[in-house]
Design a binder for these strands. Structure first.
Lengths: 107, 107
DNA sequence: CTATCATTCAACCATATGGTTGAATATAGT
DNA sequence: ACTATATTCAACCATATGGTTGAATGATAG
């Protein structure tokens, strides 16, 4: 009956935490090691490593080892899937909404 | 340190469940009562009512009472916030990605 | 007024989630 | 070889989540 997409489940679940979204924001600007990522937050290193693991599971980021460090970088393609999903809900009511928007502006 | 946005937390959390996404898809096409919504799923009515409540909390939908029924309809504005959030991660790497994309196509 | 349908509410349960600490495993630098 | 740093892993805990059932409330139709 329902079309189950475990991928979207994990993507959206990853995005539902403010710390993880902040990690994504930082990583979208530059590649960072997990320990560098961990510094600003009032959480243990292990907690951040877990958050990074969640993001990695959702394929929102990738890790690659350089020496003793794990360098985290963003994985663009996955966001396209999330966007496409949101777009799916949008398409019908978008026209309606835009019409309302213009209506309100011209009032 | 971290910019906490409880709104986005709940929006993305709502979207992380396939049943809820399916409800959204159906409701994006036409307004439906909770009991109508509940029919296709192998879950109790109460379970679906809970899912609807989660979506309502996140302001992805609204309910209005008509007689004994609660009519569920989609609330467009909230999706704009989610989209804007995703766009935030995109803007930096989007250029890079598009460049790569063109590169691969012209190869 | 009563029976029925749609919904809400409360109690309950199993499992997932987000956090902790402490120990184990690389790798780098001296 | 020793030490410090970066990471992983395992055990543990409190709370949140997603589901159930059954009872209570509201509105409609006879």
């Amino acid at each position: 009956m329902v079309e189950y997409s475990s991928t979207l489940d994990t993507v959206f679940h990853s995005l539902s935490d403010a710390t993880r979204r902040d990690i994504l924001k930082r990583v979208s600007k530059e590649e960072l090691s997990i320990s560098t990522l961990a510094k600003p937050y009032p959480l243990s290193f292990a907690a951040i490593a877990k958050h990074v693991a969640v993001l990695e599971d959702a394929k929102l980021i990738t890790k690659r080892k350089i020496g003793k460090e794990q360098i985290v970088s963003i994985q663009p393609n996955t966001f396209k899937a999330a966007n496409a999903c949101l777009g799916q809900y949008e398409k019908i009511w978008n026209a309606r909404f835009d019409a309302l928007d213009t209506l309100l502006k011209n009032k």
